[in-house]
Design a protein around this nucleic acid. Structure first.
Ligand SMILES: [Mn+2]
Ligand SMILES: [Mn+2]
Ligand SMILES: [Zn+2]
Ligand SMILES: [Zn+2]
Lengths: 138, 138
DNA sequence: TATTAATTGCACTTCTGTTGCATTGCTTAT
DNA sequence: ATAAGCAATGCAACAGAAGTGCAATTAATA
């Protein structure tokens, strides 16, 4: 039983061949992925299977969904210490206007926001857009 | 020439009947609207006309688009003092999980975020979700 | 009034996300 | 080992939102 299989198994996800492949793929990318990205990588696989696999990962708390404002949902593996499952891990996301990649800035938490009287916060989403480190290196 | 006509005109928008109606409608709502909301309000009008009207408003800088994470784009009139046209007005948006309305918190600017080495911010979007003042009043 | 430009209406397309259902594969109890 | 039962996959189709092309109107201007 490999590392990944154990990870899936311990989160109540049956480690099928497809799931292991998708997990591995997501793990080796350091940016968030759209369903179409995964589709590109596994052209022989069914879109629905990929979709449901990612959704399963999400439900089981090993992947979180990101709305980066591009109109396409992105997904990224939860880093160790990410508490998505519990009450939302409020780290911020960065979208590069140059390379179009979306990156989890896991270390950067969303600052506390004080709201007007009567408003109660339950969740928050902060996306910063600009130029990423790779793109600004040139 | 009415107030609204002047407003449109001074922003380079020809004040047609339809445009005046839509502007008025958006002005009397205090929450952000989806295209479908406007569609509901003007059932006899063509969707495309409504769509293009809002897009025109946006291009001319009197409306801004909001991605509140629901998957449906929202639009709201720019308040006096909103500098969308210039470099983005970084106020935050609140989405109520109860009444499903999205509100501009024009007074609440997005706090400065310091990013890791190499990252350069150009824009930011912060959406807080929770219970709005009207809903929490009960 | 004739010419030109902007606006609107209608039809149709694309893209993303999502579901229903039959089929296949895996697990477990007999 | 076999059969029953449940989970995963493949295939088809749908829904909603956003957007485009083009013809028909309507408004502005010469
Ligand atoms: Mn993330
Ligand atoms: Mn706003
Ligand atoms: Zn980049
Ligand atoms: Zn509310």
């Amino acid at each position: 039983m490999t590392e990944i299989e154990r990870k899936l198994d311990s989160n109540g996800i049956r480690p099928t061949a497809m799931r292991i492949l998708i997990y591995k793929y997501m793990a080796e990318k350091n940016n968030a992925l759209a369903l179409t990205d995964v589709e590109q990588a596994f052209q022989k696989a069914e879109r629905t299977t990929l979709y449901r696999t990612i959704k399963t990962f999400e439900e089981k708390g090993i992947v979180h969904q990101i709305d980066d404002g591009t109109g396409v949902l992105k997904y990224a593996l939860c880093e160790p210490g990410c508490n998505c499952e519990i009450d939302r891990d409020l780290h911020l996301h960065f979208h590069c206007n140059s390379c179009d990649k979306t990156i989890c800035l896991t270390q950067h938490k969303i600052p506390h926001i004080n709201l007007p009287e009567g408003f109660m916060a339950e969740d928050a989403n902060l996306v910063v857009k600009g130029i990423c480190d790779s793109c600004s290196a040139y």
